[in-house]
């Protein structure tokens, strides 16, 4: 109980296991084991989605053609965060970036290991840095770093 008797301090604490499905699993396996970033191509609009998902939400078509995209790409946007939460994988300050990987038609959102906003610029090139001990998580790409 809190010192303040007007409130009840409690938590909602639940362990979840989210089934990844074949698309997510393949993507995570490839980045972890082979350091390859894979996308899927829509049979209708031909867009390559990275990270992959089963259905192209614009065409509502099932996507089945896998395409490897580059480990490098162009930074389209970023922010540097200085607030802190319990679920952040890096200690602030660090950056989040929106990145268009070479060969992809959608962007990937990920961490950028850079804490100075002045050192980041839309249009600059970045490269994926892989985690040494893959755990089949999106964080097997540990972060992107400016080239």
């Amino acid at each position: 109980m809190s010192d303040d008797k007007r409130v009840f301090e409690g938590r909602i604490k639940v362990p979840y296991k989210h089934t990844a499905g074949a698309y997510v699993e393949k993507f995570l396996t490839e980045i972890g084991q082979n350091r390859k970033i894979m996308g899927v191509k829509c049979p209708k609009c031909k867009k390559v989605f990275v990270p992959p998902k089963m259905v192209c939400f614009e065409c509502f078509e099932k996507m089945e053609e896998w395409v490897e995209v580059g480990n490098q790409g162009t930074l389209k946007g970023f922010t540097v965060v200085t607030h802190k939460t319990d679920v952040m994988p890096l200690k602030p300050p660090f950056a989040y970036g929106i990145i268009r990987l070479d060969g992809a038609d959608t962007d990937i959102v990920h961490l950028i290991k850079e804490s100075d906003p002045n050192k980041l610029k839309a249009g600059m090139r970045v490269e994926a840095s892989f985690y040494a001990k893959p755990r089949k998580r999106i964080l097997d790409i540990e972060y992107f770093k400016p080239i």
Binding site: H18, A20, P51, P89, L90, Y96, V109, I138
Partner: peptide
């Protein structure tokens, strides 16, 4: 989503 974004700590 719990696959691609949540683990990044986005809010």
């Amino acid at each position: 989503d719990p696959f691609y974004q949540r683990h990044l700590g986005l809010d």
